[in-house]
Structure formats: structure tokens, C-alpha cells
Nucleic acid binder design. Sequence first.
DNA 1: GGGGTGATCATACTATGCAAACTTCACTTC
DNA 2: GAAGTGAAGTTTGCATAGTATGATCACCCC
Lengths: 219, 219
Amino acid sequence: MITPQKTRLVSRSISDQLYDVLREQILNGEVGEGEPIRQDGIAAAFEISKIPVREALVRLQQDGLVSLHPKRGFFVTPLTRKEAEDVFHLRLLIEPEATARGAQSATEEDAKKAQACLEELESAVARQDPRRGVYNRLFHLALVEPAAGPTTIHVLTLLNVTADRYVRFHMHMQDIDTRANQEHRELMACWLAGNKREIEKLMRKHIQTTLDDLRGALK
Amino acid sequence: MITPQKTRLVSRSISDQLYDVLREQILNGEVGEGEPIRQDGIAAAFEISKIPVREALVRLQQDGLVSLHPKRGFFVTPLTRKEAEDVFHLRLLIEPEATARGAQSATEEDAKKAQACLEELESAVARQDPRRGVYNRLFHLALVEPAAGPTTIHVLTLLNVTADRYVRFHMHMQDIDTRANQEHRELMACWLAGNKREIEKLMRKHIQTTLDDLRGALK
DNA sequence: GGGGTGATCATACTATGCAAACTTCACTTC
DNA sequence: GAAGTGAAGTTTGCATAGTATGATCACCCC
């Protein structure tokens, strides 16, 4: 018998897949900041045409990861201290409260999913998976999802992606992995308990600590 | 002698121009919600190829105005009460504080620009310009710009665009134009005075009032 | 006549190719 | 030798066109 899938299987377009790949590469710093992005080169490297390449780049532009100079091409947006402060400021404004609301209206289902995300994250950290930034985002979002509207999800994704870029670039992962692990466990426990005030405080502290570390790395 | 231009003259691509046009049309409700968007149709209507059409739609998708079902096309995202509440919740969280910070670090230059935006807005309202939603956004952003980073600008643009869509769809403009005019004047005066606490309170009230009106229209 | 099956049509998605624009660099002129 | 000029070489941006996929409908079997 055919077993039904939990994950809807949809055909992902080339541009859609490329979007993820390019975003990961930029977040990993594999493309130097300010460096021009040659459409032909990417198309050749992936053995595809320029059309899906352009579409992926346009999406990354809307995310603020690359900028477009007309008739001159796409460039990786430079990392600036100003933007880092900006992003974390917004996260501190939005995410603690959103997480608290998520904790309040989380169902059993939501709790399962959040815990699964945490386990996947810890497993990724344990095996030094370079994609653990992705799992970190997924965990943070899972805590928010139960109560958040689509716009909140979208904005927080945007902010977490950009924050992730700064963290990965300026900090050695091992240094924060253990601390983050500890904090994530605390967050999770508190979130499951549904303690609104406490979870809000913890999340604020979690983000603030990362920002402090980042400031230190930026000297 | 050649007079130097204040506005950098850059070549705007077809997809870039189309992005603005389509966004305005969706905001005006000229494309029914849930309605499929035929790429061929748009390409034919504007006498261009499908490539720039797709790029414009991809950008609108990142903005949340249209959604994409793989191999089935783009659809105008439906308006929901949940999203409206979500968007205004975020605006209330971000915009008052950002405006207050803008007021504090505004230069003479910034003040001139903000006042120019307000005048343009009032003029657009006076002549019943259907594009006055655009000028409203520009005014709100001008108050924030002096102190805001690029991400704050981007997020607030996103939120204001979506908020604008709900306002235009559910409310008759004349009803709020006069009240908004009054409030904008107060905001402007207070902003110029640099009264942080007061401007924060006023902006919060301004957004809250719009939300209340919107809730009323939604019954 | 209802449910399943296959052919036809419409549309999305991507490859190829081309013209316009930008960059680079050799060359000329002062 | 420095600055200006023009041609060659890249690269972007878009049009054309083909392929693949999903939707629609007629047809068949029960």
C-alpha cells in the first residue's frame, strides 16, 4: 500500500532551489561582501540558464542580502555595524513578545514540532553541521508560529536570516554553541510551561547576549 | 552650464517599473483577491515578454502581496482579518519608537524633506489623487528615516504597504482623509519640536485609530 | 448514469539568442 | 607624461521559442 506523506510533495522550481543554495552560500560568507555576482558564471556552474538565476537573485535582493546596480549587476550587500544593531534592535522588539504569545496558544501538536526542531538543532550542532544556522532559525520560528500571523513569520524570518549572517561571519561557532544549547533548553522548558512573563524575559536575554557577543567580536 | 541633478538618474528596468505598477493595482483592489494572475496576459497588455513579468511577480511574492502555487501560477493573496491585526500589531510595536528616534536625530535637511512629503501628501489628498496612499507611506517613512537603519526602513515599508491595502479596500477615503490630515499636522509639529515621549504617543494613537476604524469597517 | 481513463489544451517554467549598456584598455593629442 | 577619445570585450536585460506540467473534457467501462 502507498503510505501517505506528511510532507506535501511539491515540484520545486530551479529558481526556488537555487534561492536556498545561494542564500546559504552568502550566509556562510562563501561570497565575499561587495563582490559582484556574475549571472553567467552561476548559470554555467549549475548548468542552467540565466533566467532562474536572475529570479533567485531578485528574491535575495528583496531579502536585502544582495543589491542591484542597474545594468551593472548584483552585489553582496556589505556587512555594517549599523545594520547589525538595526536588526537586533528589531528582533528584541518583536521576538520576545511573539514567542510569549506562541507559548500561550501552543497546542500539543505545536509542542511536538518545537521539540523536534530543538532536537534536530542539537543534533546538527553535535555533528558540526554547517547548516545548523538553518535549524536554529527553524527552532526560533517554531516557538513563534502557534500565535503569529503570516507577516510576523515573514518579518522574523527576514530578521533571523540577516542576524544569522552576522553571527556566522564574526563569531566562531564553537564559542557560542554550548551556551546557546543551554539557553535553548531553558527557553524550551519555560515555553512548554507557558510562563508568559518568564519566556519573554529569557528570549530577550538570549538575543541580547548574542548581540553583546557580536559587539565584542566587532570590537 | 549643466545643472547637477539632485535625483540620481538611473535607468529603470522594465521589471522594476512593472513592479510598481502591479503593486499599485493590487493595492487599489483592481485585481480581485484570490484571482489568478496570467503571465501571458500581463505581458500582452504591456507589450513586453514574460520574463520581466515574472521578475516583478517574484518581488511581489516576497512582499506577500501575491502567492505562488508551483506550476499553477501567481494568485493575489486574500485579505484576512488575522493578517490585518498582525500587520497593525507590528506597526504599533515598531513605528512609534522609530519615529521618535527619527525626530531626535533629524537634521535641518531631514526636516525639510519631511515637510515636503507632508505638503505633497496634503496636495494629493486635496486633488483626490488615487495615489495618495503612496505619499502617505513616503511621509511616514520620512519621519523615521533620519535614525533608522536599512532593515527598519525595509520592514516598515513592507508593513505600511500591506496596511495601506487593507485601508484602501475597506474604507472610503474621504472619511479618514480629513482626520488623518489633522493628525499628520500634529505629528509633524511635535516631530519638529523633537519631543520624544509625545511623538511616540501621538504616532501610537494615529496608528491605533486607523486600526479601530478598520475593525469597525470589518464589523 | 457514475467513476475511472486517456487525449487535448492552456499555462508555467526555462533555454537560447540578441541588442544595449557598461567596463577596460590601447591609442592619440597636447 | 597626463588627460581625453574611441574601439573591443563583458555583462546585463529582454524577446523569442520550446518543453514540461497541470487542468479540462470527452470517452469508455461497469
